[in-house]
């Protein structure tokens, strides 16, 4: 499917030969927000590490923009257009705002980098006012804004956001999801969003995947997920009772 920017098929990954996530399928299209939720220890972080290339796949396949990138390293995936904003340690604290952006655009030519910084300041005017401030001196919301702007410097087609609202006040968390994340998707980027705040995040999601014990226990369109009366049952139900909607059946691997 040409509109699928990122397609993960049967991904199994883990540490020292022991799989933590098994047979995970997820697809992210342009302008879509693919939400991954699950209880603590479900394997969300391991899954993200596998997608960005920090952790090799034990089996399965990752396609990006129609190419098999399963064997690509982290730097190559980043340079190729997979942006990543970690949950913590998402900026370089001892570098200024503008230096953080410059590192984010390291692969660009000096001219392109300058233009990209100007675009970021246009999109995030608050950052321009703080351009010479060290990242460690920013508030939680400003810091997350910088982290996203830093990731956008390379103009990624897909942006992976690992719990972007973690540690933020509810109002700021709402702003990050409603304004920032939705705004980025509207510009044509595919967003792979990992979140703990299920209700808040599912409100903006195009589709939702629930990971439990390293496996996909449920996958559905955003509207289908929002209609589920008791979401907690999806989190704490057994993996064997995996439920798949008409959407996931249609989008799953052939």
């Amino acid at each position: 499917m040409p509109d699928q920017l990122l397609r993960v098929t049967g991904a199994t990954a883990g540490y020292r030969g022991v799989p933590v996530v098994r047979e995970v399928d997820i697809a992210v299209g342009a302008s879509e927000i693919a939400l991954v939720v699950g209880p603590n220890g479900a394997g969300k972080s391991t899954f993200v590490k596998a997608v960005i290339g920090e952790l090799p796949l034990m089996s399965g396949r990752i396609e990006f923009n129609g190419k098999d990138v399963s064997g690509w390293g982290e730097e190559r995936r980043a340079a190729g257009g997979i942006g990543y904003v970690p949950q913590t340690r998402d900026v370089f604290p001892t570098l200024s705002v503008i230096d953080n952006l410059e590192v984010g655009g390291f692969r660009l030519s000096p001219k392109e980098c300058k233009q990209a910084i100007a675009q970021m300041f246009e999109r995030f005017p608050a950052l321009e006012r703080l351009r010479h401030r060290k990242a460690r001196q920013l508030s939680g919301g400003e810091r997350k804004m910088l982290a996203i702007a830093r990731a956008l410097m390379a103009d990624p087609k897909v942006l992976i956001l690992d719990e972007p609202t973690a540690g933020l006040a509810p109002r700021i968390a709402h702003e990050v999801l409603e304004d920032l994340v939705v705004g980025l998707a509207k510009l044509g980027r595919g967003i792979l969003l990992i979140e703990q705040r299920v209700t808040l995040a599912s409100a903006v999601a195009s589709h939702v995947t629930v990971l439990v014990d390293g496996r996909v226990s449920y996958a559905a369109r955003g509207d289908e997920f929002r209609a589920v009366p008791d979401v907690s049952a999806l989190f704490f139900g057994s993996g064997e009772a995996a439920e798949r909607s008409s959407w996931s059946a249609a989008r799953g691997p052939a």
Binding site: E75, F92, P93, T94, L95, D99, G104
Partner: peptide, 15 residues
């Protein structure tokens, strides 16, 4: 300088 602070993040930036 970025690499000295956080090599993992620097790598994710394509450095």
């Amino acid at each position: 300088r970025a690499l000295s602070v956080d090599p993992k993040l620097a790598r994710a930036c394509g450095v």
